[in-house]
């Protein structure tokens, strides 16, 4: 519980400091090269999401095979 609390405190200080610090790794990645990395990220998220769905579907069908 205490670790959790201190983690959130740490997180909030990081977030609070992020405003006036130099651009973070996230900003420099997202804003660089005409923001093409945003597209890369979005496509990656969609492929990962569909992949996770396929993985769960695979497990579901394995269960069915075991039952039959």
């Amino acid at each position: 519980m205490r670790t959790l609390l201190s983690f959130f405190l740490l997180l909030s200080t990081i977030v609070a400091n992020a405003q006036n610090a130099a651009p973070s790794w996230l900003e420099s990645t997202l804003y660089g090269s005409g923001k093409i990395n945003v597209v890369v990220g979005v496509v990656a998220i969609i492929i990962l999401g569909i992949g996770i769905w396929l993985w769960r579907m695979d497990r579901r069908i394995s269960n069915l095979e075991r039952k039959s």
Binding site: L26, L30, Y31, K35, V38, G41, V42, I45, I46, G49, I50, W53
Partner: peptide, 18 residues
């Protein structure tokens, strides 16, 4: 709901950059 979650996450990333 799968598509809702995908839309939310991709939207969040795009919103952060824009």
């Amino acid at each position: 709901l799968v598509f809702c979650v995908l839309g939310l996450i991709t939207g969040a990333l795009w919103a952060r950059a824009t």
